[in-house]
Design a protein around this nucleic acid. Sequence first.
DNA 1: AACAAGACCTGCATGC
DNA 2: TGCATGCAGGTCTTGT
Length: 283
Amino acid sequence: MPELPEVETVRRGLAPVLIEKTIARVVVRRPDLRFALPHAFADRLAGRRVRALTRRGKFLLAALDDGGTWLTHLGMSGCFRLGGDERALDRHDHVVMVTEDGLPLVYRDPRRFGFMDLLTAGEGDGGPRLRGLGRDPLTDGFSPAYLRALLSGRAAPIKAVLLDQRVVAGMGNIYASESLFEAGIAPTRPARSLKADEVRLLVGCIKDVLARAIAVGGATLRDHRHPSGELGCFQHEFSVYHREGLPCPRCAASEGLALRDGARIARIAQGGRSTFYCPSCQR
DNA sequence: AACAAGACCTGCATGC
DNA sequence: TGCATGCAGGTCTTGT
């Protein structure tokens, strides 16, 4: 489900119901997520008050009143659901948290690629999972100079390098394809072959695509939704993702009815994952 | 060190 | 209808 815009959407949905609230009760229905929940997870989290809810890449971080941090990664299929009947749970509802207001917050994750962890106050750097993350693309630190330095010397395709969380924290398969389309850069280009002006353009496109996706609540492909149940809308604005064989929107705009055969969206596999792009205008 | 491929787990769409 | 296959928003591990 979630790349940066979807995780940010979840954060915004949870913030008003969690910040400055105490987590009264925690029920673990299944502890073996991608990684096993830490020892005594429920007991350690219950009774804690949430001071802040932030995001780092695709990680959700709840700062707790004891100085610790409750960390969640949604993996591929994780989601939070607010409210509803606490008794009407299905087999993929793995963790239930009830706030002091009596509001149930259910963590559901059919594939169990997601996980949760508790960091102690001492783990100021966020622990091993966060330590290697690159800069968040929506911060000023994610600059052309920063990205250029990380692309230099890398022979792998630019698409694969953008997915590297040490380079762009929060980038995922959809937005890597979409950002490269916006920038007019072919996903197959060796990362180190990008010129300075191409990197500058790409940085701007990454920020733009992610911001536009966040503005409409992310993309709902199968089951992403806001914690309150609303659907994201960005899938209606995809230019290339999941659009194999359809006309390239940029080529169609410039060529109209005379659209060439090569100006249709292609799908290729890179690193075992689908990449969508226009072979005609992405160079 | 960097890279590709495989592994993890479940559900769904497709085609026979 | 049933069954096999392939694919899915991620990342960790293994082997080259």
